[in-house]
Structure formats: structure tokens, C-alpha cells
């Protein structure tokens, strides 16, 4: 049974990757969105000019971009399944529902991370040149991005499964998703800030924010996992 689930998990994930490689739907829309956000940031920050230490607002700015970017991807991720009723064919096959959850979650996580990893250097290139760089080791940013994206994709996969069946799905996902993400975003911004600004004690601060991120991930993933069977069967 376990090996069957693993095989099905891989099949669904591979299918999503193949379709994405072919259409570039999610990556393109998310990537474009990230770049547009930076243009808007430029407008927002331009009058402040040199007076503003961009590093102070950078953690907030990148998480704003990431959270709204993730909405685009999550919305797309169930459109394929719904299009020609594929989700019914998937549910008709002998697959345990949690397998579908983990496969869709993994796909969403991979796409989100890919765009995050691509857009972070662009942000640094556009806003941090000739200024003070990131104080603590850069891999700390990787840790926050990975951990927070797990929470975003986990809760997002559950919510996107619901909102794909509703009228006005794009807006609705934002309405239900963003408030639920508040604690995670708060902690991710806190950790990112500690990593970027540095200073004495910043590493401790970083890890205590990371404990919040990890706690949110564990609790919310367990709940989302528990609720998934009900939601996808409805």
C-alpha cells in the first residue's frame, strides 16, 4: 500500500511538472508578477531616495511580493484539475486522498520556491547595489524562505482546492488566505529582518522567529492534512 501511494505521489507530481514545463503558466505569471511588484516598489520608495535604508523595509517588501505571488500559483494549480473534470478521474482511481494533498502541495512548493529563488537576487540587484549588504550569512534567508513557503503551500493547497469550486475564485482565495497567513508572515518578516540587519543577538532572534514559523507549519499542515479528505470529496 505504501509503495502504491509513493508511486501515485510521484505520478501526480511528475504530471504537474511536465504540464508546467510545457505551458510555463505558473512560473511565467508568478515571475512577471514579482518583477511588476518591484517596479511598484521603485515608485513607492523613490521619493525617500538615499535617506531610506532599504534594508529596513526589504523583509516586508519581499514577503508582500511572495505572498501575492503564491496566490497566483495556487489559483492556477487546480484549474488544470477542474478544466475537463480531471479531478473526478483522479478521485475515481484507487488513491488515498492525502496522497493527492501531498503531491499538489509539493508541486506548489517547488514552483513557489523556484520563483522566490529567482526573484530575490533581482531584488538585491535593483535595490541594494552600492548600499550595505545583508549582514548575516545569506543561507539564513534560504531557511526562512523554505520554511515559510511550506506553510504557504500547505494551507494554500487546501484553500485552493476549495476556492476552485466557487464563484469568483481568484479574489476569494486572497480573502480567505491572507488573514490566515498573518502569523506566518509576521514571523517570516521578523526572521528575515534579523537575518538582513544583523547585529548582536540577531542570530538568536532569527531562530526564535523561526520557531514560530516551524510551529505554524506543523500545526497548520496537520490540520490541513486532516481536513483535506473532507474538502476534496465535497
Amino acid at each position: 500500500m505504501a509503495s502504491a501511494s509513493w508511486r501515485q505521489f510521484k505520478a501526480i507530481l511528475r504530471k504537474d511538472l511536465v504540464m508546467e514545463m510545457r505551458t510555463h503558466e505558473m512560473i511565467t505569471s508568478m515571475g512577471l508578477y514579482a518583477i511588476l511588484t518591484m517596479v511598484v516598489y521603485q515608485i513607492a520608495l523613490t521619493e525617500a531616495g538615499e535617506a531610506l535604508d532599504v534594508r529596513l523595509v526589504m523583509p516586508g517588501l519581499i514577503w508582500v511580493a511572495f505572498i501575492f505571488m503564491s496566490l497566483l500559483g495556487l489559483n492556477r494549480s487546480f484549474v488544470h484539475e477542474k478544466d475537463q473534470g480531471c479531478i473526478d478521474a483522479l478521485l475515481l482511481s484507487p488513491v488515498d486522498r492525502p496522497v493527492i494533498f501531498f503531491a499538489k502541495f509539493s508541486g506548489n512548493l517547488l514552483f513557489l520556491l523556484a520563483v522566490e529563488v529567482l526573484s530575490l537576487p533581482v531584488f538585491a540587484f535593483l535595490f541594494l547595489q552600492g548600499r550595505e549588504g545583508i549582514s548575516n550569512p545569506i543561507w539564513l534567508l534560504g531557511v526562512v524562505m523554505l520554511a515559510a513557503s511550506v506553510g504557504i503551500s500547505g494551507v494554500g493547497t487546501l484553500l485552493a482546492t476549495m476556492t476552485v469550486n466557487t464563484s469568483g475564485k481568484d479574489i476569494l482565495l486572497a480573502v480567505v488566505f491572507v488573514p490566515l497567513m498573518y502569523p506566518l508572515l509576521r514571523a517570516a518578516v521578523g526572521a528575515t529582518f534579523a537575518a538582513v540587519i544583523g547585529g548582536p543577538g540577531s542570530i538568536e532572534t532569527f531562530w526564535s522567529w523561526m520557531a514560530w514559523v516551524a510551529g505554524f507549519d506543523v500545526i497548520m499542515l496537520l490540520v490541513a492534512f486532516g481536513l483535506y479528505e473532507f474538502v476534496i470529496g465535497a
Partner: peptide
């Protein structure tokens, strides 16, 4: 043991 043929094709358009 069951198969379904619907008026909806239940196939992925991008595969």
C-alpha cells in the same frame, strides 16, 4: 473495478 466515461473527457489538455 469501476470505470467512468462521462460527457466530460476527464483528460488533461496539456498532456
Amino acid at each position: 473495478k469501476i470505470g467512468l466515461i462521462s460527457h466530460n473527457p476527464l483528460l488533461y489538455a496539456d498532456l
